[in-house]
Structures are given as structure tokens and as C-alpha cells.
Design a binder for these strands. Structure first.
Lengths: 226, 226
DNA sequence: CGACGCCTTGATAAATGTCAAACGTCGTGG
DNA sequence: CCACGACGTTTGACATTTATCAAGGCGTCG
């Protein structure tokens, strides 16, 4: 179909965690070269809503949450970013979410201006930036779809997604608290806890500890994932 | 702050409904020149999920909904597009939502390839495309935030948003059914109906007819909008 | 006039939130 | 090394919100 791949067209998405050899003008490689790493303590703010968007960020290790606080204090977590993920890409000149380290994390920062300059010279970089924001849009849509589902469905979707991005294995370590999960899924911590307990009761998952989840029955989870 | 405005930076958003004079290389003007208009009957499909994204669309008159159908038949409406709005901008080569006319609508279509070609030559066009997708991302985030709120809050947010985009006046004609509203807000038609009735009872709105809403107390609505 | 689609309203059920208490775990300091 | 305290998690009882099921009304278009 559309084969022209200059600006608008997303190529095969550069998978977040891959580290294979890349072309000379690769966005991920550029971030690697141009950026500096920085450590963030647990719960440390990486940027705040309303601040100028000066940098693009890449998770080297740890995990990051972006969120918005509603007028009445409720917090909506928009996304979790895991090692390899790029975040901080914003529509305009300033962030309209805040970002914090979920666990102690190391983050690579690259100046937005430097990347813009590079993208102006290198259409390939521009294309990859487009792919990136398009991916964000898609993730956002999936998130919105998830918010209309039932609690067990949201939990199942969340666990499958996290397992896929974190390890592809059946055992995963949750980097975030129940509170984080609740604010991501639009539930309360109690409902998250109860739903996990219920899934454990049905032998769909196991919970060796609060933060460790074993997927024992992906079929059942996928069925909930509807 | 960031003053370089080549690719990544959103300028002042081209407001949807304005029709003032535009620069020679303006996205909206280009759509006007390059596109052809087409009528769509009520509920007619404009494109379907999974189809190749061959066109970009601009609402000339009427209204459009984009939606996804979940495995169990639930429908999630992602957005309504009103006169002046551009839609159909997708991440990859194919649509991951479907689009239908809410009412009888006239739509201007422009070939995606033509626009891509133009964007390659004209950085200004590329910038406006970036602004456009960034705006979609922001709208999506607002939508997700709305989905965690209570029914009255969702309705208030919806009415204020629609009034703003449709007329800026206090009286508005809803182009869509209760079912559409429900699927957009993640509620049932009964809850939508009851919540509207409740707001009318509190003299926050008036409902001269099912499809006409008068905002009588924006203060109360804004308070709910939290 | 009749039929169909859309909307409203009521009764009831189910899901989720709220409030409260207790339990675990982990790191710290005595 | 143990005790303590802070924080995160689980569980229970109950309240609230929203969905579901069902019936009837209203408009509009043939």
C-alpha cells in the first residue's frame, strides 16, 4: 500500500528492549551517543507538569511513571516506562504530565533541541520520532479502552502487558506498589488487592510474595483480556 | 525557551473552526485545495479498523465518531469530530479505529500520499502534522482522565467540551444519540439519561428536548469538571 | 394511523468504593 | 541481635454507584 516512508509512515516499531546493531542515524543510538545518564531515587521527580520539555528520556534501568493530578487530588497514572522505553516526548513546549521514578532508576537524558536539530538533518530520525509519538497515541488508546473494562479484566490486561514488556516469562516482579497499579487502572488499592487474591484463588496466577506474580494460566488471563 | 520550531515543536494550535486567511503552505488550506468532498449518510462507515489508511479526512459539516469494538461486543468511542476537525491520522499504515458518520455529513478527503509528499517538501506542513497528532495524543489523555471520574463529572466534562467546540454558546444541539454518548463516556444509556435528568433537576442544565441542552449554570458544571 | 427507533423511568442486582483494623516486611537504631 | 516504626498489603463489613432488566412514553416518518 503506502510505501513512501518519509515522514508520516511508521516503519516496524523499534522494539523497546532490543539492543542490536543499528543504522548510523538511529534514534536510539543517537540518544545513546548524545545523552548523559542520571540516577533517580525512588519517588524522585524527573519532571513536573507544566515545566518546559527540555529533554527526552530513556529508561536504562528501573521504572518510571507519568501521571496527572486531578483537582480533587486523584492521581491518574498515564503510563509506566520500563528499561529501553523512551518517554518525555510532548506535544508542545511543556510537559503536560509529571514523571517520577517508581524504583531507583538510571535514566539517560538527551536535549530535545539536539534531537530536533538532528531530525531536521536526518529524515530517518524524524521518521522514528513520528513512530514514537504514534506509538504513544496507540498505547493511550489501549489504555482508554482498558478503563471501560471490569476490574478482573483490567488486572489481566495489566499483568499480560507487563509480563510481555518485562520478561516474556511467566514470573514477574512488580516494580510498583498497589497504589500505583490502582491509579493506573482507575481502581482502588483494595480492589486491586482483592482481584489479585481472587485470581490466585482460581489458580490463574500465584503470588509468592506481594510483589511477585506468576502467571499460571495465560489462557484464563487472555480470556479476560477480551 | 525552546525557540527552534522545525519538526518537534507545536506552534499555536490551528483552531479547528477558524477560517481566516492562511499562509501559502498551510495544512488546512492544502486539504482544501487537494481534497474532494463526499457525502456520508447517517451511520455510514467512512473507514474500518484494519483498512489501509489511504486518506486524511476533514469534517465539512455533520459529525463523525471513531470507535473500536471489543471482543465481547462492547463499543468504545474514542472521539467525536466536528466541523473543521481533521481525523483519520494514524500511527502506521492502517486504521486501528473505525469511523462512521453520526449524522448526515460531508467530508473532505485528501490522499495521505499527497500530503506526505507535500510535508517532505514543506517543513511547515510537517510541523502542522506534528501539531495535529500531538493534539490527538492530548485529547486521548484527557479522555482517559475522564474515564476515571464519576458519571456526573463525565457528563459535565462532555457537555462543556461539546459546547466549547460546537458553538461556545450556552445552548447546544447534540448530534449523537444517548447510546453514542454512553459509549464515549464508558457508561450505559440509562446512566446517561438519569444523570442528565438529575442535572436538569438541579437546574444546572435544561433539556427542552432530548437532543437540545442548555447550560444554565456553568459554575456548577465547571465544579464537576474538576 | 402505525411502527420503529430513541429516550425515560422504576425496581433490583452487581460491582466497586469507603472505612477500619490487622498483618507483614524491611530498614533503622538501640 | 532484637525491637520498633513506617509503610505497604490484606481482609472484613458496609455504603454507594452504576449496570441490568423491564416497561412505558414520545416523536417522527412511512
Amino acid at each position: 500500500m503506502t510505501t513512501q516512508r518519509s515522514v508520516l509512515v511508521a516503519g516496524p516499531a523499534p522494539k523497546a528492549c532490543s539492543h542490536g546493531p543499528r543504522s548510523r542515524h538511529d534514534l536510539f543510538a543517537s540518544v545513546e551517543l548524545m545523552g548523559a545518564t542520571m540516577p533517580f531515587a525512588r519517588n524522585a521527580e524527573i519532571y513536573g507538569e507544566g515545566e518546559p520539555a527540555e529533554y527526552l528520556y530513556r529508561v536504562v534501568s528501573g521504572a518510571v511513571r507519568t501521571y496527572r493530578i486531578l483537582a480533587d487530588g486523584r492521581r491518574q497514572i498515564g503510563a509506566f516506562y520500563l528499561p529501553g522505553d523512551i518517554f518525555g516526548l510532548e506535544a508542545g513546549d511543556e510537559h503536560h504530565s509529571s514523571a517520577e521514578a517508581v524504583t531507583h532508576s538510571t535514566i539517560r537524558l538527551v536535549r530535545r533541541n539536539a534531537l530536533i536539530a538532528l531530525a531536521t538533518r536526518e529524515p530517518e530520525i524524524a521518521r522514528q520520532l513520528w513512530t514514537l509519538i504514534a506509538g504513544e497515541l496507540e498505547r493511550m488508546q489501549d489504555h482508554a479502552v482498558m478503563l471501560i473494562k471490569s476490574a478482573p479484566e483490567r488486572i489481566a490486561t495489566f499483568l499480560l502487558e507487563l509480563a510481555r514488556r518485562l520478561s516474556a516469562a511467566d514470573s514477574l516482579e512488580l516494580p510498583m506498589t498497589r497504589h500505583d497499579i490502582a491509579d493506573y487502572l482507575g481502581l482502588t488499592i483494595e480492589t486491586v488487592s482483592r482481584t489479585l487474591a481472587q485470581l490466585e484463588g482460581e489458580a490463574t496466577i500465584a503470588l509468592p510474595s506481594a510483589r511477585r506474580v506468576v502467571l499460571r494460566n495465560r489462557g484464563a488471563l487472555n480470556r479476560l483480556n477480551a
